[in-house]
Simulated assay, not measured.
Amino acid sequence: MKKLYNGIYVCILALMLLCVISCDDDDCDRTCFVTLVCNINSGVEGDELYYEVQAGEMLPVPELVKEGYEFAGWYTDQATANNHTASATIKFEPFDLDNIPIYLDVVLYARWIK
């Protein structure tokens, strides 16, 4: 039975290696899809911005304004983004669009504080 598991393990590793080797740089689609939920006018068309970038590229940072609020960063966690008090305990750091390139599809939520 142990030989069967070892054989399955070796086959899986071989298949994974073939997938990596067979993906030529020109054939691989490295497009990442980014959705920025601005939370300016929730539920209104245009409140979400959609971008397509190549893996490893920087995302252009939009300038956002929401009357009566201060922009507090982009978060992958919607619950954190929806907390509008400045004194709130935040469990997650904001996503740094200025310095971190995009490598995966992601949805980011704007956080606004009063």
Rank of each mutant, 00 (worst) to 15 (best):
M1P: 12
K2E: 15
K2T: 15
K3F: 14
N6L: 14
G7I: 15
I8M: 11
C11K: 10
L13P: 03
A14W: 10
A14Q: 09
A14T: 14
L15S: 12
L15F: 11
L15T: 11
M16P: 01
M16S: 13
L17Q: 06
L18I: 15
L18Y: 08
V20E: 13
V20R: 07
V20K: 08
I21P: 02
I21R: 06
S22Y: 15
S22R: 15
S22D: 14
D24E: 15
D24M: 10
D25V: 09
D26N: 14
D27E: 05
D27K: 12
C28W: 00
C28K: 12
D29A: 05
R30I: 06
C32I: 00
C32T: 02
C32N: 05
F33R: 15
V34A: 03
L36R: 02
L36N: 02
V37G: 05
C38K: 09
C38R: 00
N39G: 02
V44N: 11
E45C: 04
E45A: 10
D47V: 04
Y50A: 09
Y50V: 07
Y50F: 09
V53P: 01
V53C: 01
A55F: 05
A55Q: 13
G56Y: 00
E57H: 11
E57Y: 03
E57C: 04
L59M: 12
P60Q: 10
P60R: 11
V61M: 14
E63A: 12
E63V: 12
L64P: 01
V65I: 08
V65C: 07
V65P: 03
K66D: 06
K66C: 10
K66W: 06
K66N: 09
E67G: 05
G68A: 11
G68E: 08
Y69F: 15
F71T: 11
A72H: 12
Y75D: 01
Y75W: 06
Y75A: 01
Y75E: 00
T76H: 04
T76S: 11
D77V: 05
Q78F: 03
A81Q: 07
A81H: 08
A81T: 06
N82Y: 10
H84T: 15
H84R: 09
H84M: 13
A86E: 14
A86N: 04
A86F: 13
A86L: 14
A86H: 10
S87V: 12
T89Q: 14
F92A: 13
E93R: 13
E93C: 00
P94V: 02
F95W: 09
F95K: 03
D96P: 00
D96C: 03
D96W: 02
L97A: 12
L97D: 11
L97C: 13
D98N: 05
I100S: 12
I100M: 11
I100H: 09
P101T: 05
I102E: 00
Y103D: 08
D105F: 01
V106R: 00
V106A: 00
V107N: 03
Y109N: 01
Y109K: 05
A110H: 01
I113D: 04
